[in-house]
Structure formats: structure tokens, C-alpha cells
Amino acid sequence: MAQQVITQSKVVPAAQYRDPSLMQSLWWNVTDALIITRRNLTYYVRLPQLLVFSTIQPVMFLLLFAYVFGGAIQTQNGNYINFLLPGIIVQTAMFGGSVAAVGLAEDLKKGLIDRFRSLPMARSAVLAGRTLADTVRNIFVVLLMIGVGHIIGFRFQNGFLNAVAAVVLVIAFGHVFSWIFAFIGMMVKDPETAQVAGFIWVFPLVFASSIFVPTETMPELLQIFAENQPVSIVANVVRGLMIGTPHDSVWLAIAWLTGIYVIFVPLSVWQYRRSAN
């Protein structure tokens, strides 16, 4: 008899199950996301070349823009590297999010999302863990670019606190946009398509913006778009905070990011939950 009790206790009896409390569920939202973040960051440890190449590309962009276009592009105070660096880290933070689209599409294709969905884990955790890991990588890349920028002549012009605020805004921007990439990855379900689809909407936002060039020289309609779209607004604020140029309100930038966040987080989680259909 005793034997039987012991063997039966090996299996969790259904009747013992209790729903977690609200606090417990909220806590699991955090811890589950961190477990997945750790798993995604492990990829960079196992494949250091992944980190190396995904870092070389933005640094190369920085150097190419600074030296190839630097002479040709006229900016107000004539110092193109000071104009360029704030813009190009915004662009880098945005491109960095595309890893989320490809990574999630790959997890779907390999059936890993099915495994996760069959576990009693928080429904947001797989996506939050993905975007958090990409944010960690973004922090690394952005700081590296500021370092390289410094070597080729970039200087903060607006005090330490504003510089910190600018970096925080860039990272927040990258994080918010990685949720859009996450949504795309869950939608298209295929890594190759995710790679392409992930970028299509990015190019107009990045190039028809104040990231690389002042918007004054653009045709009128384009200029209206370029000055009022979120990427430009964030880039202008970041630039303003870093080098003191006039810019839109920080609150406008934060409002845009909050708006995108509250739309795309639920949308992505919804897509995650129905991903098998």
C-alpha cells in the first residue's frame, strides 16, 4: 500500500491544481520573460560571429555615411558627424528589431512556439523575452557606435544628463519598434519572408526622415511626411538632446512610442495565441 502511495505521488494529480493568484501571475509574466530572454541571449554566446557581424554592419554604416556623404551633405553648423551620429543610432536601434521578426518566425517554423504554448507559462513571455534580448543587444551596439563616433570626432554638446536621456530614448524607441517586428514575425511565420517583410516598411521611415539629411531640401509633400513621422520626431529629439539643435517636444516622442507600444504589444500577443490556426 505504502509503495503505491509513493509511486502515485510521482504524478501530479489533477485535483491538486490551483489557479495562481493575480500577484503570482504577474510575477510569472516577469520571470518567464527573463527565462526566454536568457535563452535568446545564449545564441550570441554560442555564435559569437552573430554578434560580431550584426555589430560590424552598423559601424560600417556609420563610417560610410560619415566619410562618403559627409562632404556632400550640408548641415547647419557644418559638422556632419555631430548631425549624423544621433540619427544613425536611431536607425541602428530600429534595424536591430528585425532580429525579432526572423527569430520568432524561426521558432514558429521549428515548432518551439508550439512547445512554449503547451506550457503553463505567461502568454506574453516568448515575445517579451525576444524583444528584451534584442534590447540588450541594442544597448551594446548603440554604446559601441557612440564610442566609434567619438573616435571620428563626435562630441556631446548638451550636457551629461541630456546625453543619458537621449540614449535612453533611443533604446526605448528600439524596444517599442521591436514589437512591430515581433508582430510581423508571428504573422508571416517564415524566416525568409520575415527577413524581407520586416524591412519593407522600415525603409521609407528611415530614409524619408531627418536621420541622415536635413528635411528642408525634400519636395514639399515628402517634407511634410518626413517631418511628422515618428522616426524623424524621435531622431530630432535625440539629436536635440545630444547636440542642442532645436527639436520637437520630448513628450511628443514619448506619446508616439507609447501609442505604438499599446497597439503592438496586445496585437502581437493576440497573434501569438492564435499562431497555430
Binding site: 535563452r39 545564449t42 545564441y43 554560442r46 555564435l47 515548432g111 512547445r115
Partner: peptide, 9 residues
Amino acid sequence: GQYPAVDEM
């Protein structure tokens, strides 16, 4: 599931 779902990395 029908196909192993383990993380390769």
C-alpha cells in the same frame, strides 16, 4: 509533438 521541438542552440 510529431516533430521534436527542442532548441538547437
